[in-house]
């Protein structure tokens, strides 16, 4: 399968990339790691006339961790996320999740920016970013703007990003020290997209859950932030019955598609199990 013809561009600065995107118009697409885009180009589901490769834009490659905020450049690869001990110390769910994405070769090229900008409900990072309450920074010809990950996803492959915009940074508040976390992902085989997955971060004080946030992957045509389910946990002792009630509240907002990963009822059921496991594991890890 050889993709259709296109012109290849490799700008070396963000301004040049924005300029190219505006002058080339809607027939141009950005390429980051290419591991969602190139498969789609082979299937002719994407047929750009121009590809603008971001690999030389150095300003998109940094990971910054401080006590209040973490920010990730769009061109940071999954492998680089896994390798950063500083990031792992502050927000361990990112390594746990990245290790469950695809395989080593794909993680060497696939980027965090491509993963969240792509808009595929199967991508794992969007639910993580919704769960963390992350903000996306978009740069375009009119300057930059910020949008919450929770407002970014409209439908499968439709996001709030405008054609001429480049996602530059993903930022979020550094989770409270001692928080519990877990990403539980059910998949058919290693490297597969989720049948259903749940992301949880919570804090516990004196045996009582103080804060909680839950995100869900691949159980609707967008990632889901399960606000009500998390609300059930807050104030509880994270006992089995409460966790079950929270999982049911999460399942209630899912609307998975029927695909090779199983019938709708099965995927909803798995979503509930993933929420229960993720909450239980996070509770155990919380200090």
């Amino acid at each position: 399968m050889i993709p259709g013809s296109f012109e290849y561009h490799r700008p070396s600065s963000l301004d040049d990339a924005i300029g190219l995107l505006s002058s080339l118009g809607e027939d141009a697409l950005l390429v980051a790691g290419g591991h969602s885009l190139i498969p789609m180009m082979k299937l002719r589901m994407a047929m750009p006339e121009h590809l603008v490769d971001l690999q030389d834009v150095q300003s998109l490659k940094s990971i910054t961790v401080d006590t209040n905020q973490i920010s990730l450049g769009a061109m940071v690869t999954q492998a680089e996320l896994i390798a950063s001990d500083e990031l792992h110390a502050a927000c361990p769910i990112l390594r746990e999740t990245s290790l469950q994405i695809a395989d080593p070769q794909i993680r060497n090229l696939g980027t965090i920016g491509g993963n969240v900008a792509n808009g595929d409900p199967g991508n794992d990072m969007p639910a993580i970013m919704q769960m963390l309450g992350a903000t996306y920074v978009l740069a375009g010809p009119q300057g930059t703007r910020e949008i919450a990950a929770r407002d970014f996803y409209e439908a499968a492959f439709f996001t709030a990003r405008e054609d001429g915009e480049i996602l530059t940074t993903i930022k979020f508040d550094t989770p409270t020290a001692g928080h519990g976390w877990a990403y539980e992902k059910q998949k058919r085989k290693i490297g597969d997209y989720a049948t259903a997955a749940a992301a949880v971060v919570l804090t516990v004080s004196g045996g009582v859950c103080e804060t909680a946030s839950i995100g869900l992957t691949n159980v609707a045509d967008t990632p889901l932030w399960a606000e009500e389910a998390a609300g059930v946990l807050v104030g509880s002792a994270l006992d089995e019955a409460t966790i079950k009630t929270a999982a049911n509240a999460a399942v209630a907002i899912t609307d998975p598609a029927l695909d090779g990963r199983g019938p709708v009822e099965f995927r909803k059921h798995i979503a509930g199990i993933m929420v229960q496991r993720a909450v239980a594991k996070a509770a155990q890890r919380a200090q």
């Binding site: 390429v31 290419g34 794909i106 060497n108």
Partner: peptide
């Protein structure tokens, strides 16, 4: 210095 799947890399990306 990194393993990649060369069926999912355009020649220009490897320039």
């Amino acid at each position: 210095g990194k393993s990649v799947k060369s069926c999912t890399v355009f020649v220009g990306q490897a320039n």
